[in-house]
């Protein structure tokens, strides 16, 4: 059911844990739906210097969390913003169709961690609008407010991607 790459990331997850003094924290998913991702980033000079995750969830949820940390570690914030859930799934050699929407939220968590980081820096130029524009271009469901308990996860499968 899962690709070898998914199984590799599931059994040997990269960057598991938390960062005590994280610059940004992003949460995606909802334990009611079985998946909850928490992502911590450390940023220096607009580059994601370190990233860690904690995930409660199925094989896909854990593997995508691990995968996304590899994909964005060392990348600039702008580069990280262009990473999509679909790209994470693709990097893992694909996911079973049923998992594409319920357990493929790792990029969302990255975007939220960046949002959190940028929101905490009011002195700097707000990148909020820029973020949303780029996210929409990159195929992320744009403009969606995403608190810890995501409404969209409540048992409906949006018709997109695949």
């Amino acid at each position: 059911m899962y690709s070898d790459k998914v199984m590799d990331h599931f059994f040997n997850p990269r960057n598991v844990g938390m960062i005590q003094e994280a610059d940004g924290v992003g949460i995606a998913g909802n334990p009611v739906c079985g998946d909850l991702l928490k992502l911590f980033i450390k940023v220096k000079d607009d580059v994601i210097e370190d990233i860690k995750f904690q995930t409660l969830g199925c094989g896909a949820a854990i593997a995508t969390s691990s995968m996304v940390t590899e994909m964005v570690k060392g990348k600039t914030l702008e580069e990280a913003k262009t990473v999509t859930n679909a790209a994470v799934a693709q990097a893992l050699g694909g996911l079973p169709p049923v998992k594409m929407h319920c357990s493929n939220l790792a990029a969302d968590a990255v975007h939220k961690a960046i949002e959190d980081y940028e929101g905490k820096r009011p002195g700097k130029k707000s990148r909020e609008s820029l973020f949303k524009g780029e996210a929409a271009e990159a195929g992320v469901r744009g403009g969606r407010e995403a608190p810890a308990y995501d409404e969209h996860l409540h048992h409906e499968i949006p018709e997109e991607e695949d």
Partner: peptide
Amino acid sequence: RAMSPLTQTPTS
């Protein structure tokens, strides 16, 4: 559980 964000005791 060590990987889970809901676990009471952080392990790393």
